[in-house]
Amino acid sequence: MPNYFDFEKPIQELEEQIEKTKQLSQKNKLDLNATIKDLEEKMLAEKKRIYSNLTGWQRVQISRHPERPYTLDYIEHCFDDFIEQHGDRNVKDDKAIVGGFAKLGNQTVMVIGHQKGRNTKQRQLRNFGMANPEGYRKALRLMKLAEKFNKPIITLIDTPGASPGLEAEERGQGEAIAKNLLEMSVLKVPVICIVIGEGASGGALGIGVGDKVLMLENTWYSVISPESCSSILWRSWEHKEKAAEALKLTAPDMLKNGLIDGVIPEPLGGAHNETNEMYSRIKDELTKVLNDLSKLDSEKLIEKRIAKFSAMGAFTEA
């Protein structure tokens, strides 16, 4: 049985009805194809209606769907010959961030991304996609390597935030992220960042300074998660829906506010619903964007990248 969200209830009911009708027709050897077709059309219409009117909170839920593709899934299906590298050469290997060279078509690229786990054991191993300082430092090491060999960098963002903990603070979580922001802004090779799930705050931005920053349609990106925002501003976790609206954290809102460069549409029902379609859309988009960026020399790339982030902000100047 697939996972349904609350807001997908009408879809679930229709799906169950279709299943029942199919069983009935088999059992009683009745020709109910017309009814089934009718129901299927109804379900498709319902799905389209629901998915074209998603609220911020509903998109947050989709971005966390347990069957949603993670970084390693994209690496497996959009790239070839991935050679994973480990460790920050300092403390340890952070399993919440993975990375290494791979082929995108004929082009060698460096792919780096947050990695979540699918079951309890994996989730613990990957620390729920919450990286420690050594994760950000591994990412930077790999980015510098890509720069050295003049290969473009692709980062995939999917984190509920940088890891909060004793060791993270001892080893300088703030410094690790800050350093990445500074260094990424002057990398001499093209950098493309895609939010594939959750884009929470500094933990996301820590691998998110790029020439093109894209978001999948049903992801979120903001300074704080709606739950934490609710608990701070309303002093309760109950107002997460309101917080999700207030934060304007969806891909269309982020594009409208000029804080990202584009939105990659997801298949109907979300990326998890038709993963192959999602993989091919990402691969096409990456190929296209890489081709565009390869026309710029490194000086121009850096200049444009810094100018883009420098222009972000809303204020008046009287």
């Binding site: 802004s185 931005l205 506010n257 982030f309 972000m312 902000g313 809303a314």
Partner: peptide, 16 residues
């Protein structure tokens, strides 16, 4: 928080 992602991007801007 009240400037949400606008605030977040100030981190990238100042660091750059």
């Amino acid at each position: 928080m009240m400037e949400a992602a606008f605030s977040l991007m100030q981190m990238a801007k100042t660091s750059a």
